[in-house]
Amino acid sequence: MRASKLTFKIFLMILFNDLGDSFAQLLMKKGLLQTGIEVVTWQTAIEFFVRNASSPLVWAGIIVYALNFFIWIAILSHIDLSVAIPIGSTTYLIIPLLALFFLKEQITLLRWSGIGLIVAGVYFVTKSTDFSSEKV
């Protein structure tokens, strides 16, 4: 078993990686909405893939995903999967906060509670690694 030490650098890499993932999803979602096809039958499925394969937005999303892969494997080579994945959930709070500051979007109390839970969760997971790295 390999020791897993979470450093600040790796933490930042995870954040960067997950922001990239969100960005890629956004690009793909935009691309998908443009084609506006709902996959119900095999025929719509074929149409769905043909149309999306010619969408620049979808391709941009795929490229961002591909670049992200190289950051992700470097992260995985250093820390446990069960640590890297939960910490990545930090994007769930970065995006609403960006929307708050730049788009002046309102954040509801329910959403603040969700953000609070995620912060607490990431804190616990981060703490749990120090724990296991002592034992390894």
Partner: peptide
């Protein structure tokens, strides 16, 4: 991988 209470609770909170 080692899963302790902290990690499980953290993941469930998330």
């Amino acid at each position: 991988e080692k899963i302790n209470w902290m990690k499980s609770i953290g993941t469930i909170l998330i």
